[in-house]
Amino acid sequence: MKGWNLKNWGHAPALAWTAVFFVAPLIAMLVMSFSARIDGKITLTWTLDNYRSFLTRADGTFVGALWNSIEVTVLTTIISVLVAYPLAYILAYRVPKNWQRFALVLTVLPFWTSYVVRSYSWLLVLSENGIINQFLLWAGILDTPIGMGNSRFATVLGFVHFFAMLLTLTIYANLVQIKDSYRKAANDLGANGWQAFWYITLPLSVPGVAVGAFLTFVLAIGDYITPQILGGAKEMLLPQAVMLQIGRQADFPLASALSMILMLVITAAFMVFAKRLKMERV
C-alpha cells in the first residue's frame, strides 16, 4: 500500500502535464516520421524513407541545412555568453543592491516587444537606408551603403539580441548566490581581483552559464522566424526546411523526420551540457 501514499501523487500533475504536452506529441511525431504521403493521404507504412530522404534528397540540401543550423546556433550561443556574462557580473557586483531590480527590468525590457516586430526592426536598422548605414555615410566612413540585412550576420545579431537577455538572467541568478565570503577569503589569502574571479567566481558560475547556454542552443536551433526574416533565405536552416515541407507540400512525414533529427541534435547538446546543468544553482 506504500505505493498509494498520497505524498507520492504530488508529482502527478507535473507528470500528466509532461505526458500530455510533451511525450504524446513526441510519440505522434515519431510515428508520423515513419509514415508516407501517398496520393495526398498520409499512411502509416513504417518506412525509413523519410530519414533516407534527409541524407539523399535535394542534392544534400537537408544535411547542409542541419550544418548551417548548428553553425549559426553555436556562434549565437558563444557570442551571447560573451555579451551576457560581463553584463550579469556588473549587475550582480557593481550595481548597488537597491538598484539591481530596476537594472534587471531594464535588461529584459526588449523581451516585452513582439519577436516578429523586433526582427523586422533589426531589418530596418541594418538596411541600406537604415540608421547604421546613414551614420557611416554621414561620418565619411563609407562612400556607398553596405548590405548588412538578409545575411547570417543579421540572423546571429537578431538571436544574440534576444538570447543575451536570457543568459544575463540565468548568469545573474547564479552569481548572486555565490557567497561574498569566498572571494573575501581568496583576497585574504593573497589573490588579487582577477585571480579571485578566475579561480572562485567563474568556476562557481559555470552552472548558470551552462543552463543559459543550453536554453539558448535549444531555442535558437529550433527557431524559424529570425532566420526567415533576418537571414533573407540566403542559406537554409533546418527549421526552414521543415516549414518548406509543411507549407508547400503538406509532407508531414518528412517534416516530422527532419524534426526528429533536430531533436536528436538537441539531445546530443543536452549530453554535452548535462554535467554542468545544476538547475538548483540557478
Binding site: 538596411s127 551603403p145 548590405g147 540585412g149 526567415q228 533565405a233 540566403k234
Partner: peptide, 22 residues
C-alpha cells in the same frame, strides 16, 4: 540568380526589401 540576389523571401519580405532599399 540567387548568387546575385540580396534575398529570397515571401511577399512581405520582398516588399519590405524594395521599400527599405535592400
Amino acid at each position: 540568380m540567387k548568387k546575385l540576389s540580396s534575398l529570397v523571401g515571401d511577399v512581405p519580405t520582398t516588399q519590405n526589401a524594395l521599400v527599405t532599399g535592400a
